[in-house]
Design a protein around this nucleic acid. Structure first.
Lengths: 336, 336
DNA sequence: CTGAAAGCGCTTACAG
DNA sequence: CTGAAAGCGCTTACAG
């Protein structure tokens, strides 16, 4: 069978405890002893059994990351950032996708991998305020995304409100007045869609502009295809509009596609802006004006918070809002 | 502390073994006993400790997926497909990113998560033929991607050669004759880049066309940015070309961006084609002609192969080539 | 169909 | 700085 710590101990002429000390970087070991143990580990090709360690210590060195889907570039890029940040703390990330489905999100919460993860980075999309009680998990957790819950949980939040206001103001400052919105979810009182839409409406109010009728279109799962469909639907209504604020980048990219297919010039006829600043936004034609919620910052902060929470170093719960950055590009400015 | 099987057994008035039987779906249990146990599990909020089970049984129900990076949509979409396929077998996927770095790829191989995964879906990019011996892992493994190794390993391969030939023939059939290639890796004798480039050259030969000089440009990490840079470099040389075959879609998308920035019309002046058929390829402007290596098929097949291999049901090693599909779109056809 | 015993490979106190 | 003992929570044979 597999080589065990006992085998290594025998080979090195020490006790298993000493091997364990070496493996775990316990500092007070004679250099000579360490060398002997390391040589034995190498000679035998020993690899520690993480399950055994976990069973005894209660820790695995693995944290979970629950996101809707990786096909959404925002979450894929967030996952890469989380993996990098976790690596700096010697942690491995186990990704779970929930499909933005409430049931699957609750499952991810209820059964954090059968004690297989020490903590959870949790990015729900389908949960509502009625689920707030479920958030009282035994496993340490940091919530990513929106402030839809006000329970005792650590949060790292996107600055949806200010980010949205910045991009809508930009549109208004470019002289746009009839700004359509795609991706709304009229049935959801909370959540990303509602927050961004609310901030959009507030910004119009700031400028003394009423929210235009018939220019808010829902957009399914916020994929490129839903963005294209939503835009086709909007164009089909014959409504006039001179700008589109898409609630995320993939929607915006789909919308750009549909606008181009209808011969609408961007930004001359219609300006388009999104939210997320996925890599693709810099390379589309036209390049997309969007809000960068700084996913790297979010990932780092969330991992650090989780590490502290797991260590029990945190007394109260933290709510951190990540800084946003507006990137203005051709889709609202024209090719310079 | 946490609720254990023993607690459940006591609550239900049975032995731990019986609880274990229920948890693992052992069929021969009296319905009444099962009900009692289930009720106790529910009442106590019991969740099995996977580490303990793993320690005893040697299995975790987790398989690893090692890919270069999730920021590359091809791998993100592949990961989603692998997660879905694994779920159908009751398996969880643990993703590891290696950054296409040989060292990190070897690490992923050498230490499959400290016995934490039962098997590995392995998609290396930095490894060369000199590393073939490392592939003799103890952990069951299925190789994804290229046939750069001929060792005794299970493979699920992209049909690089036929896929490439199909797209290059398409370009030639459109009357293109000076077809540039971006993303080559002149220093690598094997690997995806070499295989696709070789197939490109072979296809030209089929048509009796010599490989044009100075039209092969390397493309770093195959990101959008490297595609844009490579294209800018090519345009800077003043070389004439009427088509570009980018070795993957993100390169192609970056190249399209650079071409547009230089006022080159696509496909009128230059046709562009890629490889991967990421979702984005359908929504770019122009939409991108590309080869679909059928990642869903690859993921399903690989997971099935791995499941059989883990079960010990496989005697010899399998090499499976996934079917490809050519999607012709505006970037080579013009807007219809 | 269900139970009692042993042990998977580590780490945790506790000594020394 | 290092060792001997106990035990984490399961499952694996083995009975019955």
């Amino acid at each position: 069978m597999a080589v065990t710590m006992r085998d290594v101990a025998r080979e090195a002429g020490v006790s298993p405890k000493t091997v364990s000390n070496v493996m775990n970087g316990y500092p007070y070991i004679r250099a000579e002893t360490r060398t002997k143990v390391l040589a034995a580990i190498d000679a035998l090709g020993y690899r520690m059994n993480i399950s055994a360690r976990n069973l005894k210590s209660g820790r695995t060195g693995v944290i979970g990351l629950a996101v809707p889907e990786l096909s959404n570039p925002y979450f894929a890029e967030l996952a890469d950032a989380a993996i990098a940040a976790a690596g700096e703390h010697g942690l491995t990330v186990m990704i779970e996708t929930t499909g933005a489905d409430r049931e699957r999100e609750l499952t991810a919460l209820a059964r954090p991998r059968g004690h297989l993860v020490d903590g959870l980075l949790y990015s729900p999309l389908g949960l509502g305020p009625e689920d707030v009680d479920q958030l009282h998990t035994h496993t340490p957790m940091v919530l990513l995304g929106e402030r839809i819950f006000h329970g005792p949980v650590d949060h790292v939040m996107i600055d949806n409100v200010e980010g949205t206001k910045a991009v809508v103001r930009h549109l208004l400052d470019q002289g746009r007045r009839r700004i359509a919105v795609i991706g709304v979810r009229p049935l959801e009182g909370v959540g990303t869609a509602a927050i961004r839409y609310g901030a959009y409406a507030d910004t119009l109010a700031e400028y003394g502009i009423p929210v235009p009728d018939g220019l808010a279109v829902s957009g399914g799962k916020w994929h490129r295809s839903s963005g294209a469909d939503a835009m086709a639907e909007l164009l089909g209504t014959g409504q006039k509009f001179d700008a589109v604020f898409a609630l995320n980048d993939t929607l915006a990219l789909g919308a750009i596609r549909a606008l181009a297919a209808h011969g609408v010039r961007i930004p001359d006829d219609v300006a388009v802006a999104g939210f997320d600043n996925i890599d693709e936004a810099s390379y589309s034609s036209p390049a997309l004006t969007t809000v960068d919620p700084s996913r790297v910052h979010i990932a780092r902060t969330a991992v650090e918070l989780l590490v502290q929470r797991m260590a029990g170093d945190l007394s109260e719960h933290h709510e951190i809002v990540a800084p946003y950055e507006l990137h203005t590009r051709e889709s609202t400015l024209g090719v310079s």
